[in-house]
Amino acid sequence: ITGDVSAANKDAIRKQMDAAASKGDVETYRKLKAKLKGIR
């Protein structure tokens, strides 16, 4: 179950990262990237 949750989280975070990148929001992008590392 835990694996599914983190996989879903990663997917959601990647989508947020894409949105931040397209807006040029480097700050948010970095925060999300750090979150991704924390999940692993």
Rank of each mutant, 00 (worst) to 15 (best):
K10Y: 15
S22W: 05
T2E: 11
K33E: 14
T2K: 12
A21C: 12
A21Y: 14
I13Y: 03
A21P: 00
L32T: 01
L32V: 00
G24M: 03
K10I: 15
V5E: 09
V26F: 15
A21I: 15
I39L: 14
K10P: 09
D25F: 00
R30E: 14
K15F: 05
N9I: 15
S22I: 10
R30M: 13
D11N: 05
A21M: 15
A34K: 10
G38S: 11
A34V: 07
A20K: 01
N9Y: 15
G38A: 15
V5S: 12
D25M: 01
G38F: 08
A7M: 14
V26P: 02
D25S: 00
D4Y: 06
I1N: 10
A19K: 08
A21L: 15
K15G: 04
I39D: 06
M17T: 00
K37T: 08
A7I: 10
D18Y: 15
A12Q: 11
D18G: 06
G38I: 08
A7Y: 10
I39A: 05
G24Q: 04
Y29N: 02
V5Y: 09
I1S: 12
D11P: 00
K35F: 14
Y29L: 09
A19P: 02
A21R: 13
V26E: 06
A34N: 09
R40N: 14
D18R: 14
G24F: 04
I1A: 10
L36D: 02
L32Q: 00
D25E: 02
K33M: 13
Y29R: 01
S22R: 13
A8W: 10
K10H: 10
A8G: 07
L36V: 01
G3P: 10
R30K: 10
A12H: 10
G24A: 03
G38P: 04
D18Q: 14
G38M: 07
I39M: 11
R14P: 02
E27G: 01
R40M: 15
K31Q: 05
D4N: 09
D18P: 00
R40F: 14
G38D: 10
G24S: 03
G24H: 02
D18V: 14
M17Q: 00
T2S: 10
T28D: 03
R30D: 07
K31V: 03
G38H: 08
M17S: 02
I13S: 00
V5H: 09
K23L: 07
G38E: 14
K35S: 08
D4S: 13
A7S: 12
I1T: 09
K33D: 05
A7D: 07
I39H: 07
S22L: 14
A34E: 14
A7Q: 11
I1Q: 11
A34G: 04
K23W: 01
E27D: 08
Y29D: 01
K37E: 15
D4G: 09
R30A: 07
D4K: 07
S6H: 09
V26I: 12
K31G: 01
K35H: 06
K33S: 07
M17D: 01
N9W: 15
L32Y: 03
A19L: 13
R14Y: 09
D25A: 00
Q16N: 03
K37D: 15
R14N: 04
A7F: 11
R40A: 13
S22H: 07
I13M: 03
I1W: 14
A20L: 01
D25N: 02
K10N: 05
T2R: 10
A8Q: 12
S6P: 08
K15E: 08
V26R: 03
T2Q: 11
Q16A: 14
K23S: 10
A19D: 12
I39W: 07
V5M: 12
T2D: 13
T28S: 06
N9R: 13
I1P: 10
S6I: 12
K15L: 09
I1F: 13
A8V: 09
R40T: 14
G24L: 04
V5N: 12
K37V: 09
V26G: 05
Q16I: 03
L36M: 03
K37Y: 07
Y29M: 05
A21N: 05
K33L: 15
V26D: 06
I1E: 10
R40L: 15
A21F: 14
A12L: 11
K10D: 11
K35L: 15
R40K: 09
A12I: 08
K35P: 03
I1D: 09
K37N: 13
K33P: 00
I13K: 02
R30G: 02
L32N: 02
S22G: 05
S6E: 13
A34P: 01
S6Y: 08
G3S: 12
E27V: 06
A7G: 08
K10V: 15
D4L: 09
S22P: 00
V26C: 15
T28E: 13
Y29P: 00
K35Q: 13
S22E: 11
A19N: 05
K33H: 07
I39R: 03
K10Q: 12
T2M: 09
T28M: 07
D25R: 00
R14H: 06
D18L: 15
A20N: 00
M17V: 01
A12W: 13
K37Q: 13
K35V: 14
K15V: 07
G24V: 01
Y29H: 02
K23Q: 08
K15P: 01
A12G: 05
A34Q: 11
G3Q: 12
V26Y: 15
A7E: 11
K37H: 13
K37M: 12
L36R: 03
K15Q: 07
A19T: 06
T28N: 04
I39P: 05
G3E: 09
A7V: 10
D11Q: 10
T2H: 12
T2P: 13
A12V: 08
A21S: 05
D18W: 15
D4P: 09
L32E: 02
G3F: 09
D11T: 05
Q16M: 12
Y29A: 02
A8I: 10
K15I: 07
G38N: 11
D25Y: 00
Y29V: 06
A7N: 08
R30H: 06
K10A: 15
D4M: 11
M17N: 02
K10C: 15
G24N: 03
M17F: 01
R40H: 14
T28C: 12
A19V: 12
K35G: 02
D25C: 00
D18K: 12
S6W: 10
N9C: 15
R14K: 09
V5A: 08
K23N: 11
I13V: 03
R14F: 07
L32A: 00
Q16Y: 03
K15M: 08
I1H: 11
E27H: 05
G3W: 06
S6K: 08
I13A: 00
I39F: 14
A21G: 03
D18F: 15
A21V: 07
A20M: 01
R14D: 03
I13R: 00
A20W: 01
K23R: 14
G3T: 09
V5Q: 11
A12T: 10
K23A: 13
I39T: 05
V26M: 15
D18C: 08
L36H: 03
A8T: 12
K10L: 14
K37S: 10
K31D: 05
G3Y: 07
D4E: 09
D11E: 11
I1C: 04
G38Q: 13
I39S: 06
I13T: 03
R30Y: 07
D11G: 05
G3R: 06
M17A: 02
V26K: 08
A12Y: 08
K37A: 14
L32R: 01
A34Y: 03
V5W: 09
L36K: 02
D25P: 00
G38R: 12
E27I: 06
S6D: 12
K31E: 08
M17L: 04
V5D: 13
A19G: 03
Q16R: 04
K37W: 03
N9G: 09
A7W: 13
Q16K: 06
D25V: 00
N9K: 13
K35R: 05
V5I: 13
K23P: 00
V26N: 07
G24W: 03
I39K: 05
R14G: 03
A8N: 10
K10T: 14
V5P: 11
I13C: 00
R40D: 13
D4I: 08
T28R: 04
R40E: 14
V5K: 11
K37R: 08
A21H: 07
S22D: 06
A20G: 02
G24K: 04
L36A: 01
S22K: 14
N9T: 14
T28L: 15
D11I: 06
A20D: 00
